[in-house]
Amino acid sequence: MARLTTEPELRHAGLNLADDPREVREQVESDVFGFWVFLMSDAVMFALLFAVYGTMRHATAGGPGPEQEFKFHSAFWETALLLTSSFAYGMVSLSMKHARGQLWLALWLGITFCLGAGFLKMEIHDFLTMFHDGATPERSGYLSSFFVLVGMHGFHVLSGLTWILLMGVQLAVFGPDDRVKVNLIRLGLFWHFLDLIWVVIFSVVYLEGLSL
């Protein structure tokens, strides 16, 4: 069988696939793989936004730069929130894998949502403060690239939050059926992936800007 070379069970710590019939396993395999491919395409997009940011790092055109605008503490707490939410989603996956009951699942999903929402709230607050200081995206090429890069991540988080809500509803309607499970796995990949992008953002954007 060319299609299935390894046991998928360990790979997607989210789904106990071993007892399912082969067709279901294969479908899940390709569904998840397809989502990986999408994430990689998305990663290229982020990578290019980083590259553009890098080339525009000094294009402040006399306007405000990172030294004045970045807040160390909010960057730190945002990071903490997002990392914790990633851990919380890990618990979602575990509850699903070991069939710990819907309540656990819903609980951790809820926690993930709150942490993500908290992150987004802080980020929006930061943006508004910057706007208030006159650091708007129209001010300079540097600020344009900053807002598009970080804003794009924020937009992804917003999409992730919407998705979490949607999955909550689907859990209520269908219970954890196959499709809900596959989508929870994909959502998990998405959420951890956003965390990963954020790691690069806080390193390359915030810490670089603050280390001067």
């Binding site: 553009v52 080339t55 525009m56 294009a59 402040t60 055109a61 306007g63 995206p137 129209e138 001010r139 300079s140 090429g141 540097y142 344009s144 690239s145 807002f147 598009v148």
Partner: peptide
Amino acid sequence: LLAADRYLGMHFFTNDLGGN
């Protein structure tokens, strides 16, 4: 990014304010 320039007045590829 071109759309961001055109719709939101950003400066990615403009001639002024650091666009490139």
